[in-house]
Design a protein around this nucleic acid. Structure first.
Lengths: 154, 154
DNA sequence: CTTGAAAAATGGAGGGT
DNA sequence: ACCCTCCATTTTTCAAG
């Protein structure tokens, strides 16, 4: 189970985290190998869980989801059942793209994608509003997204 | 230039944002079309910028980047040149995977991936520490990542 | 890891509704 | 304008060495 990644594996991961549509052949050329060993490495990296999935990154703004909000949430109480009830409620909301249990003044941080302010208001009042475990919320609005990569520093 | 997306385009985007390794053939079966028109739609969606890129999503924890921190940053001054100097400095730091200009008490929110607390400490003192435009910082640590999708609510 | 070959997908031509 | 059915080309996938 002690799986080791050599520098070539790391380079493959780096390349794929920037562009996964590259062919095995081109990938092979970049790491100075033939396609076959690269193919085997990819399968190992996928099977080992180092690569979770392959996805298309969409342009939210072009798709009329131009508003990003970080929504901090404080629970009413802090026992395990309240916390897991909150998480399963929030998982259902498809405006919520990310959810973190955090340290500090608030308990959870949500990253929310909304069409506009009106949509976000509706989300807060009608969707979050019906989640009983929530005590209070605090919204931080994104004015500009300056950087958004998925590149881990390998 | 007024590009319109029909329900089939939206479904293709939805499917690809969950799994982009699906073949055009399988994609075609899911939307009840033959591969050719699906292929043409994909090229249109890519050329139109609706699909920004295709990437592999890695498991940060497996790759020894188990610590996620949201780092709030206040600038010393709020003129344009200080702000853009900060952004270009922060873009270089590969621990920073996301950077947002935000409303509220702080000016910027960074999402940082670190190996561990020691690495994060080093990042704050040595890397952020040398960015002159920074006034103060406030770190919020992620205890648990409950949800992380890239699915826009289409 | 290399070679090499079968299976599958991509990308496009040409025709139909 | 949009879709379909082929078909050549390329890529993926997996043997055997």
């Amino acid at each position: 189970m002690a799986e080791l990644l050599d520098p070539i594996d790391l380079q493959l991961l780096r390349l794929l985290s920037e562009n996964s549509n590259i062919s095995t052949k081109d990938l092979a050329a970049k790491v100075n190998l033939s396609p076959s060993p690269v193919f085997e490495r990819l399968k190992r990296l996928e099977a080992g869980g180092f690569i979770k999935k392959y996805i298309a990154v969409l342009d939210a703004e072009k798709l009329n989801y131009g508003l990003i909000v970080f929504c901090n949430i404080k629970l009413k109480q802090h026992d395990r059942s309240i916390g897991s009830a909150f998480v399963s409620d929030v998982m259902q909301l498809n405006e919520v793209v990310e959810c973190y249990n955090i340290s500090g003044d608030y308990d959870f941080l949500l990253k929310v994608y909304a069409k506009d302010m009106k949509h976000y208001q509706d989300f807060v009042f009608n969707k979050l509003g019906s989640v009983k475990s929530i005590g209070s919320t605090h919204s931080t609005f994104v004015m500009c997204e300056n950087k958004n990569t998925h590149n881990i520093n390998l």
